[in-house]
Nucleic acid binder design. Structure first.
Lengths: 156, 156
DNA sequence: ACACCTCTCGCAATTTTTTTTCGCTATGAC
DNA sequence: GTCATAGCGAAAAAAAATTGCGAGAGGTGT
């Protein structure tokens, strides 16, 4: 998991692919000033080395009928490893949960949930939070505005 | 922005593309039982209709030297529209900020930041939070475990 | 019931892109 | 200096994408 050493070409390629991985290798080659073959070899290596971990299409939440994002803070009863792992597994397995972070500080987990409406959220609280004896309490924040949603990160 | 009407083929295609948009149209055709041409026409329409909003490569945070995710809750001084917009713009423009939600409840913004180390985070707090007179206070949670990170959502 | 229109399909041809292969050159070790 | 390694561009081969066309299903109005 050590940081890989990327040269300036790799970084440029990654910046392009982060924004749009449908960009043709020919176009990338033109933009970064390499041959298409060289770009291909580099992208292949970036995959093999686990630097690129996935390639995904991003969907419009409203257009597919899940217009509401909810951010939830969870506190657990016990942080014993087994109990903790059980909570992690349960949260990670829920398809409505897009993201889950185990964090330092006053709360234990921060979770981002995508739902169609608040009644679906209520159903999820019952299924995942109230039904889990190790979840002590949770606090709900409903997003009024998804100001920025991406996984893009600076590559430098 | 109304929810689009998708048939069962569209939904299957979206489920595949959400997980891996490098899947060839031929392979998708095989999986959903259509011709490659039909799949192509549908994907094209899904793009045109804004149901697929982006296609991106996901990078390994540790491999590109940004192993730390920080979740920050922000409270603002004033929620007057102009002031609010200014805060939103400033947060959205920061490349280290991957996500930003404007939320209901005791805090106003929840922000996810990707950093190389805590000194970079400190620098960001100065630049984005302390330097902004409309940001009253903020609370920092450092992720010990990225239990789940995706944008995948159920398509049903 | 019939003609008409629209939508979407599959098939096949064409174009584009990706992937592989083949020298050639630069760099570092011995 | 020579050998091994790695990276390059160019060209060839393979795969995937896109487009054109005719056909069938389903709905609409006469």
């Amino acid at each position: 998991m050590a940081a890989a050493d990327l040269d300036s070409f790799d970084r440029k390629i990654l910046r392009i692919l982060q924004r749009d991985n449908m960009t043709s290798q020919r176009e990338i080659a033109y933009q970064v000033n390499l041959s298409a073959a060289a770009v291909h070899r580099r992208i292949h290596r970036l995959h093999a080395d686990g630097i690129i971990t996935a390639n995904m299409a991003v969907l419009s939440p409203s257009k597919i009928g899940r217009p509401i994002s909810v951010i939830v803070e969870l506190e657990v009863e016990s942080e014993r490893p087994e109990e903790l792992e059980q909570v992690k597994r349960s949260l990670a397995a829920a398809p409505e949960i897009q993201q889950c972070y185990y964090v330092t500080g006053e709360v234990d987990f921060i979770v981002i949930v995508s739902v169609a409406d608040m009644s679906e959220y209520e159903e999820i609280t019952k299924r995942l939070f109230f039904a889990n004896p190790n979840i002590k309490k949770f606090r709900t924040y409903v997003a009024m505005d998804r100001v920025k949603t991406s996984f893009e990160m600076p590559v430098d």
